[in-house]
Write a protein that binds this DNA or RNA. Structure first.
Length: 362
DNA sequence: AACACAAGCAACCGCATTTGT
DNA sequence: GACAAATGCGGTTGCTTGTGT
């Protein structure tokens, strides 16, 4: 196995081609291939002055002989604030596997759950992993995930391993009589699903841990294990998610995920459901570890889910407002939201404190 | 030392979606 | 609503580097 690359090298060869496609560039030669230090400097200076976006204008204004798409890609993958440069940690690798089992090849969506990571990085990691495991004759997913998904499919794909490009297709969400419970994500007949109690609101919310294949041990005190869930959920709709690190107002999220499932629910319910999804994706043990070591990352993940579940509501702004550490990153360039805490019924400082200190709040 | 191969990664391409006019 | 431009995404390619023979 090759050791992790410390210094990323650039490709050496370059080519120049005529600009094509729909880009509004003048008909002149645009450079392709690896970026030079001088080009990088121009790109960074332009973004520093004008912010992200309007990439085609960059070529016109700065004279950089690169198409807008190339500029955007270079920025996103190399210069965006708070990008991590080191190799994936074991925790990140585990999360990628879980996310892929859940969403398939939705690299951009997966990247939103891995702070400081790009979709390209995750894609490369996964493709490498696929090759490795194919060569070794190993299944794509660890046994516990493989077993879970097989059970979710009710035998549809039993003994029919899927490939990296074709995760198992599942039945659509079954409607229920309860608008509230039917709105919650990932509800199923999984025996390890449960009722999550929010003591501050006096409300119970059902959920499940789709990847748990054995009863949960060492529950946090504030998790109230209730009766089995009330409704059936088997698959979340796949959808394309809008990026939220641009310099413009966050567009209407086209997230089919929680948004589709939560058409009428209120902010607090979305918060709780987003938290459920975070738990669902990470597993309770990882959540516990994150509470002890990196509460900020956990909050990030939940807020990301909320942002995608809450159209026209810019959650990262709430995050920034309540953050004492002023954590930056891809949320930092986002504009202020017109939606207030009160409108979505959140008490973010209390919530954050609860997470960081592991005291619950739910 | 030379070569072949695999791993890692950057960047391109085509298409889909979103946004602006 | 129609169209064009801009942007975003996933698939793929091909280069560099490390390792084994």
């Amino acid at each position: 196995m090759r050791p992790p690359t410390v210094v990323k090298k650039e490709r050496a060869s370059t080519t120049a081609v005529a600009s094509g496609g729909a880009a509004a560039a003048p008909q002149q030669l645009l450079k392709k291939g690896p970026w030079t230090a001088a080009e990088d400097a121009i790109l960074k200076e332009y973004v520093r002055k004008h912010g992200e976006g309007n990439w085609n204008a960059l070529q016109k204004k700065s004279g950089l002989q690169r198409c807008g798409k190339s500029c955007r890609l270079r920025w996103v993958n190399h210069f965006r604030p708070n990008l991590k440069k080191e190799s994936f940690s074991p925790e990140e690798e585990t999360l990628i596997i879980r996310l892929h089992a859940q969403f398939g090849n939705k690299w951009a969506h997966m990247a939103k759950h891995l702070r400081g990571r790009t979709d390209n990085e995750i894609k490369n990691y996964w493709n490498t992993r696929v090759k490795q495991r194919k060569r070794a004759g190993l299944p794509l997913y660890p046994p516990e995930i493989q077993q879970h998904i097989s059970s979710r499919c009710h035998g549809q794909v039993q003994n029919a391993p899927w490939t990296a490009n074709s995760p198992p297709t599942l039945k659509p969400l079954q409607p229920t009589n309860s608008s509230f419970t039917s709105a919650m994500p990932l509800l199923s007949e999984n025996p390890y699903g449960s009722i999550l109690q929010d003591p501050s609101r006096g409300k119970n919310i059902s959920f499940q841990f789709p990847f748990l294949t054995s009863p949960v041990q060492n529950w946090p005190e504030n998790f109230d294990l209730g009766p089995p869930p009330l409704s059936v959920k088997e698959e979340l709709p796949s959808s394309q998610f809008s990026s939220n690190y641009g310099d413009e107002q966050m567009p209407h999220c086209n997230s089919g995920l929680l948004n589709d499932l939560l058409p009428e629910s209120h902010g607090e319910e979305k918060l709780l459901s987003s938290t459920c999804l975070a738990i669902d994706l990470l597993g309770i043990k990882v959540i516990e570890e994150m509470l002890e070591t990196d509460g900020r990352a956990l909050i990030d993940m939940i807020l990301t889910e909320m942002a995608m579940a809450t159209p026209k509501t810019f959650v990262p702004d709430l995050y920034n407002n309540c953050s004492s550490s002023g954590s930056s990153g891809e949320f930092s360039n986002c504009p202020s939201s017109v939606t207030t805490d009160e409108e979505i019924e959140l008490d973010m400082p209390q919530l954050e404190w609860s997470y960081v200190h592991g005291t619950g709040g739910f």
